[in-house]
Design a protein around this nucleic acid. Structure first.
Lengths: 227, 227
DNA sequence: CAAAACCTTGACTGGACGGTCAAAAGTGAG
DNA sequence: CTCACTTTTGACCGTCCAGTCAAGGTTTTG
């Protein structure tokens, strides 16, 4: 009842899940391999063969555990999204605004650094037009974002942060944090080898936090938008 | 000598270009169609057939004008990147820092709104590991970014903007501006139909500019990064 | 040990797709 | 009209790939 399917399209046939020990192991191996391959090659570019290879089994064997390529994809995407949402859900109306946002941004930057594949997988899905998670975006995600934006709105009304459209603030945070995973290649090309170095994550976090958190500080002398 | 190939890998065979009137027309039709299809489906997902269809010609006919799918892709990518760079190149050391950046950000946001396909095409290329433009990123783009970052560094030294790593500032700008094109589907899913409305672009620009420009204002009471 | 259930595999099918080819259709100069 | 040329087309090839199938191997369980 727990791991069922939050992105499910066909809630009809609930497959029973008396997963044997070996099934759990193999399914996990497949999902791990799938994440890497899908993230690197995209949905179309990834082949079942490649995933199977990376999971140390034959293609036929993989298809014994999952009915189709799309099913593998759906499940790995679902896991990723779930994990991605956690720190966002954790934003609390009771905390200190800047502190809450700092924690969220930091968490997302960490995730991008530690699990760039997940970020790229999601990114890819969206760029294809979100064929599998559009419904999820319009329902559960929208609700969640609305909820968190209401909190931010309240902070603004209380003059605890600058009056910036909460939705755009969220988008800005998503944009920057995702960027470091999705455009890793470009960043490395420009910064050279230093990009992988130890201090880099801290440096990145510092810069991003400086810009965004400074950008929402409650100030009197506010920068006006163009018009 | 002009439209040759800035991303070229094989500078060897320079094809002569006494393009007839009809050739120019057809090639343009193909490139326009290709941009749309590649942006929507990705390189692997796009088929020559689909591109030809959208350009109102047969697949064979398309392949008469371009030797291969990759050649079409390369050319459309090249055009896109070229266009993308212009406003960045325009950043001048002589202008007022905040004004220069405002202009750049605004220009990029406009491009994202008017030509999201270009943004998605580029994004897709990077996420595949930049197979065709890695070299370009490491050479020409890197040089250009280094150059512009030196300008920003100077602004910082002159205390005209806050001391934020120029590279990360550039990445943040790229991230946010690209986001509105690349994640359009997600944004629309969350904001509902209002996302397409008239005021939306201005609203977006205002919010993004507020955050980033405020974030780099030269202030005494600076927000410190986590550590 | 033996039957049943579960797991694994190689060979195969059908469809999509990039690209070739040779021949037809159009175009224009003399 | 004729000849050389460019453009357009349908038929075709080889390859890749998701998914099926039937048969054999391995575990589990009584």
């Amino acid at each position: 009842m727990d791991r069922s399917s939050s992105l499910a399209t066909s809630p009809a046939l609930e497959k029973k899940k008396p997963r044997s020990r070996i099934q759990k192991l193999k399914r996990k191996a497949i999902l791990d391999a799938a994440l890497e391959v899908f993230a690197a090659e995209g949905y179309r570019g990834a082949s079942v063969e490649r995933i199977a290879e990376r999971a140390h089994m034959s293609k036929t064997n993989l298809l014994y555990y999952f009915p189709s390529k799309e099913d593998v994809y759906r499940e790995v995407l679902e896991q990723t999204v779930e994990r991605w949402l956690e720190p966002f859900e954790a934003i609390s109306p009771d905390g200190e605004p800047v502190e809450e946002l700092r924690r969220y941004i930091t968490a997302k930057l960490d995730m991008s650094a530690e699990n760039p594949e997940g970020s790229r997988l999601f990114s890819n899905e969206i760029q294809r037009g979100a064929p599998l998670i559009l419904d999820f975006l319009q329902t559960r995600l929208k609700t969640l974002v609305d909820e968190k934006c209401a909190i931010i709105r309240q902070w603004i009304d209380d003059e605890r942060i600058a009056p910036i459209d909460p939705y755009h603030l969220v988008f800005t945070i998503w944009a920057t944090t995702q960027h470091y995973a999705d455009f890793e290649v470009q960043i490395e090309a420009i910064l050279g080898p230093q990009a992988g170095k130890v201090g880099f994550r801290e440096q990145t976090a510092h810069a991003v936090l400086s810009i965004i958190l400074n950008g929402i500080r409650p100030v009197n002398s506010n920068v006006r938008g163009s018009s």
